[in-house]
Design a binder for these strands. Structure first.
Lengths: 194, 194
DNA sequence: GTCTATATATTGATAGAC
DNA sequence: GTCTATCAATATATAGAC
């Protein structure tokens, strides 16, 4: 198929998603216009509709992709000790959150702007991620190396605590990533009575 | 002064703030129009501008009031033991958050939509609240009843964890408020090595 | 695939009657 | 204090040229 003049499909698609993510995270979904996204990409507004049926689908795709990548990146190993698994979860969650701060922010900021169907899909993925942590806590409790009064609440509490790192962490600040992870792991370890 | 026909200033003002808070929290600041707010209040859009110079000032007032009320409601007592003070902080923060879920949600969701001046004001109030907790942790550390590797990080981590309760708590659910507070206090107590 | 041009709706905010 | 009417700007989305 002949190349159309000015066509750059290979890079425009990803670029739209990248810029939309950045702008949505910074200003909020409703506050960002399709023209702003197009301008950041370097095309006209009409060109966006070659890649997405509408604005809402663009948001839904970004959130869905984030949760899918998050779940795909987490590799648990039930053969390790519960404490080992928990430490790996803590360090993984912090690293992933700091690597994708815009996605993390968007993923629990803009759920309300999703249609019911899209919302249900994202909520289910989120729940699966909580389950991954709950599973470790349950194993630790069973093995007698953790004391967790309520598995479900503790899983949500710990995830909220760890995700909060994106609110204040700045590259080149007082603490580097590995030191931050050490401190969070220290807090988590004791919180679960280990 | 004579009463103007249809005038209900005593209730319209508070009602505007109440409905704006509810709508902003539910759909996001940018997604809510002045007409929607007016409609929820039961007046026409033009009438709102008797009470606020513009939409941005309405948001800034809501956030500023929330932080001021939060700081005003928290009563520390340096004469008590650090552990007592920490327990009171935990229970206070959970109760206040569950009493004002919309304000809590808005307060760390819509900071980005504030003008620089308004943003600086709210951020300073927020910092004062973190200081209130940091102060307790420092006292506990000094008294040897807590082990806190990093006071500032721990204060932010604990507040993030506690605030997260608004994301999942539902009245009439599996756990009641006092049981929820008990569990969070258990987590916090151990996290700080007490 | 991208552009220009445009249809259609909605926005924040203001003016003036009552 | 509230209403109606309205302005000017901006929104999403589409049609058709290239």
């Amino acid at each position: 198929m002949a190349r159309t003049q000015g066509s750059r499909a290979e890079i425009t698609g990803p670029l739209i998603r990248e810029q939309a993510l950045r702008l949505f995270a910074r200003h909020g979904y409703a506050a960002v216009s399709m023209r702003q996204i197009a301008s950041a990409v370097g095309v006209q507004a009409g060109a966006l509709y070659t890649y997405t049926p509408d604005k809402q689908a663009l948001l839904a795709d970004l959130l869905s992709d984030h949760m899918t990548r998050l779940l795909g990146a987490w590799q648990d190993d039930p053969d390790r000790s519960p404490l080992d698994r928990l430490e790996r979860f803590v360090r993984f969650h912090i690293a992933f959150s700091l690597d994708h701060p815009d996605s993390v922010f968007l993923s629990y900021m803009e759920l309300r702007n999703l249609s019911p169907d899209n919302h249900a899909e994202i909520a289910a993925l989120r729940r699966r991620y909580e389950d991954a942590l709950a599973c470790i806590l349950r194993a630790g409790q069973a093995a007698g190396v953790m004391t967790v009064p309520d598995i479900r609440l503790t899983a949500m509490a710990l995830i909220a605590m760890l995700t909060g790192v994106t609110n204040w962490y700045r590259e080149g600040g007082r603490l580097d990533r590995s030191r931050v992870a050490d401190i969070y792991w220290d807090l988590v370890k004791r919180a679960v009575g280990a």
